[in-house]
Amino acid sequence: MFEVTVDAGFSSGHYLRNYHGKCENPHGHNYKVRVTLHGKELDHSGLLLDFKELKNVLRPVVEYLDHRMINELVPFDTINPSAENLAKYFFDETSKHISGLTGGRVQVKDCTIYETDTSAATYYA
C-alpha cells in the first residue's frame, strides 16, 4: 500500500454549542489540516497522486473555512464545529473529488485537524 500526505493551514473562528467552559465562547485557531491518501497501485508516472493535484483538491475546502466564523457555514450551522467534526468534513469533501479524479484507484485514508501544535483530532472510515 502506498500513501501520500499533504498539509494545509487556515485561520477561523468558532465556538462549541452544548459545551460548558471557555470554548463555548467565540474564539479562533490557526488550524492545520493533514490529509493522507492511500492505494495499492501507482499511476503511469509512478505516483499515487501528484502532491499538486491533492493540494488543488484541498484548496477550495480550506478556502471555504478560512477567515470565517465556522458556526455560520453549512454544515456547521447545525453541527458543532469541533475538531472531530472538522476532520470528518475534510475527509468527506476530499473523498468526493479523489475518487472521481483517480477512478477509485486512490482513497482518502484519514484527515487530521490540528487546533494547536499539540491538540488534534483524526477521522478515518
Rank of each mutant, 00 (worst) to 15 (best):
F2P: 02
F2L: 08
E3Q: 08
V6I: 15
V6A: 08
V6R: 14
D7V: 12
H14Y: 13
Y15N: 07
L16G: 05
L16N: 04
Y19A: 07
Y19C: 11
H20M: 14
H20W: 15
C23R: 01
E24W: 13
P26V: 10
G28S: 12
G28L: 11
N30A: 04
N30C: 08
Y31V: 00
Y31Q: 01
R34K: 10
R34P: 00
R34C: 07
T36C: 12
L37P: 08
L37M: 05
H38C: 10
G39D: 01
G46P: 10
G46Q: 09
G46H: 09
L47W: 12
F51G: 07
F51K: 08
K52P: 11
K52G: 12
E53N: 13
L54Y: 13
K55C: 07
L58H: 03
V61W: 03
V61F: 01
V61R: 03
V61L: 12
E63I: 03
E63Y: 11
L65R: 07
L65I: 01
H67C: 02
M69Q: 13
I70R: 05
N71S: 00
E72N: 13
L73M: 11
V74K: 12
F76W: 03
F76E: 07
D77M: 02
T78S: 00
T78P: 00
P81W: 08
S82I: 08
A83Q: 03
E84P: 01
E84L: 00
N85Y: 06
L86A: 06
Y89I: 09
Y89W: 09
T94D: 00
S95P: 01
H97N: 15
I98R: 02
I98E: 06
S99E: 15
L101F: 07
L101C: 06
L101K: 11
T102C: 04
G104C: 04
V106F: 01
D110M: 11
C111A: 15
C111P: 03
I113S: 04
T116K: 09
S119L: 12
S119N: 13
S119W: 08
A121F: 10
A121I: 05
T122P: 02
Y123F: 09
